[in-house]
Simulated assay, not measured.
Amino acid sequence: MKKFGLLLAGGIAAFVLLSNLGPLVALGISIVILYYVFKQFLKTDSTLMKIGWGIIGFIALMATASNIPAILGIAAAYVLYLVYKKWNEKKSVVVEDNDPFTNFEKQWAELKKK
Rank of each mutant, 00 (worst) to 15 (best):
A60C: 07
L21H: 13
G22Q: 15
T64W: 06
L80K: 03
L82H: 07
L72C: 13
M1L: 08
F15L: 15
V16Y: 00
K114F: 02
K50V: 00
I29L: 13
A77G: 09
I12G: 10
L27Q: 08
L34A: 14
Y35D: 14
I74E: 01
S30F: 07
G54W: 12
I31M: 11
G5P: 06
S92G: 02
K106S: 04
L34Q: 11
K85Y: 06
V79S: 08
A26K: 08
N98K: 06
I68M: 08
F15R: 04
G52I: 11
S92H: 10
A14H: 02
M49Q: 10
M62L: 15
G22N: 15
L18R: 00
G5L: 08
I59D: 07
V93E: 04
F15T: 12
A70H: 02
L82C: 10
G22L: 15
N20C: 11
L17T: 04
K91D: 06
E105W: 06
G10Y: 09
Q40A: 10
A63R: 02
I56C: 12
N88V: 07
K91G: 00
G28D: 13
K50H: 03
T64D: 09
K50D: 03
K86Q: 12
D99H: 08
V94T: 11
G73K: 02
S46I: 10
Y81L: 07
F15A: 15
V93C: 02
K114V: 00
G57V: 03
K91S: 11
L21R: 14
G10K: 11
G73H: 02
D45L: 11
Y36E: 10
A60K: 01
K39S: 06
N103V: 08
L8F: 15
V32E: 14
I33C: 11
V37E: 12
F104V: 03
I74C: 02
L24M: 15
V37P: 04
P69T: 07
Y35I: 15
V93Q: 06
K112P: 02
Y84D: 05
L17Y: 06
I12F: 03
A13C: 11
Y78G: 12
I33G: 10
V95P: 01
I33S: 10
P23W: 03
K113L: 00
A26V: 01
W53K: 12
E96I: 12
K39W: 09
L34Y: 01
A77Q: 01
F38C: 08
I51N: 14
G10E: 09
M49K: 07
P69N: 08
V25Q: 08
V32D: 13
A75R: 05
Y35M: 06
V94Q: 05
Y84L: 15
V93A: 05
G11K: 13
G22M: 14
K113E: 00
I74V: 14
I33T: 10
F41M: 11
L61T: 09
K43H: 10
D99M: 01
E89K: 13
P100M: 03
W87F: 12
N98A: 08
P69C: 01
I59G: 00
D97H: 04
T47E: 13
K86Y: 08
L80I: 10
K106H: 11
K106P: 03
